[in-house]
Design a protein around this nucleic acid. Sequence first.
DNA 1: CTTCGACGATCAGGATTTTCATATTCAGGA
DNA 2: TCCTGAATATGAAAATCCTGATCGTCGAAG
Lengths: 230, 230
Amino acid sequence: MKILIVEDEPKTGDYLKQGLTEAGFVTDLARDGWDGLELAKAGHYDLMILDVMLPGLDGWQVLEGVRRAGVDMPVLFLTARDQVEDRVKGLELGADDYLVKPFAFAELLARVRSLVRRGHGSLESTVLKAADLELDLLRRRATRAGRKIELTAKEFALLELFLRRQGEVLPRSLIASQVWDMNFDSDTNVIDVAVRRLRVKIDEGFESRLIHTVRGMGYVLEAGPEGAAP
Amino acid sequence: MKILIVEDEPKTGDYLKQGLTEAGFVTDLARDGWDGLELAKAGHYDLMILDVMLPGLDGWQVLEGVRRAGVDMPVLFLTARDQVEDRVKGLELGADDYLVKPFAFAELLARVRSLVRRGHGSLESTVLKAADLELDLLRRRATRAGRKIELTAKEFALLELFLRRQGEVLPRSLIASQVWDMNFDSDTNVIDVAVRRLRVKIDEGFESRLIHTVRGMGYVLEAGPEGAAP
DNA sequence: CTTCGACGATCAGGATTTTCATATTCAGGA
DNA sequence: TCCTGAATATGAAAATCCTGATCGTCGAAG
């Protein structure tokens, strides 16, 4: 699996190259847009990781050039914070995924693997839904009944987990391992507190409640009441 | 590589078994001390993961039985928080490493791999030193000139990194990747702030300073002044 | 020797997350 | 039905961590 990295900042570039190499990928590193474009057209790669901010030719221009040359490969964009709307632009221009700097390497690796495996063009849905609740993974934004809801990092991760496994009862231990990467022996109640914070934000003040407690088991996110008895 | 897990709590047991299996190990799971002892004596394993709190036969008793039977294999203890001093006891009794619950799975995996690779009996030093500063990884405690120093999780991780690579100049990018698992594009100064907090705790009010700034490069922890010119 | 610019230090403010203490709810048995 | 213990909910304080602004300092160029 060959990956082309286009990144001008030496530190970031080396970091990526080293990390991906250790993970078993073959990597080439281009230090600017022009080199990146050349390499992309010459050797054929399974994936390109493309920084948006580049001297000379920026990320989008590189992408455009690559596509014009008829080269077909998945592209993962790296964007700086703030450039939120830019991300969307990147995706519209044919990128397959994006990542906001600073990012955890594990995160990058997960996305790289996913892209390499699936090939491009098949980006997973970036909006998760349940009833009138929506979670836009791309824009990192949540809304319920049209109202925007601000979420912190942990809240976001927790809600994402709930939405991905709608209807399933999630035991605390599972939540702990997914959201905290922790093995809990239940000597803390962080999870309960986190669930409560999330509930306040997405359930309080709305018609129906989405997060339900299953005593002795854990929590579920479910749209309709299961044992509906009027 | 075969691993025996002895853990009574179903959630934790399954969590371990699943995680380690996914990581490519073959695992057996014993739900109590007696079963654990039987299995340990019968099949020969490359590693045993042993919970201290077990119904019937506790972890130490299992370990003792195993050793009496002349079975030789590395043992990783799992202990609950509070039982800090117990850990030491476990190590003295012939355990090869320990882990405090709750723990991150990545942490466990790292230690498991290390033990399987090195075999037992060769536990790395658990106390790191520099001049009159000591960091006890076992007890998660730091002292300088005998005085105890309270450290937070991040501070601890940072100091551990500094001590493990004494004398080396650590660029911010390295620190970021090690302590934060983050790729930074230097649009934040978290590291500077963290270093400062650490400095206040371990350098302020003491004879010599240990953490030095190398302009344009990063930070070093060093006992003696390098260019000593009196 | 002085000035300028980049880099680092420091501080205060906030946001987030965790801990802790205390209520409340629920299921099952008396 | 009423109790009782365990599980969960809740509120608020405490700890930790991050952000952003400002100030100081070092080093090189003039």
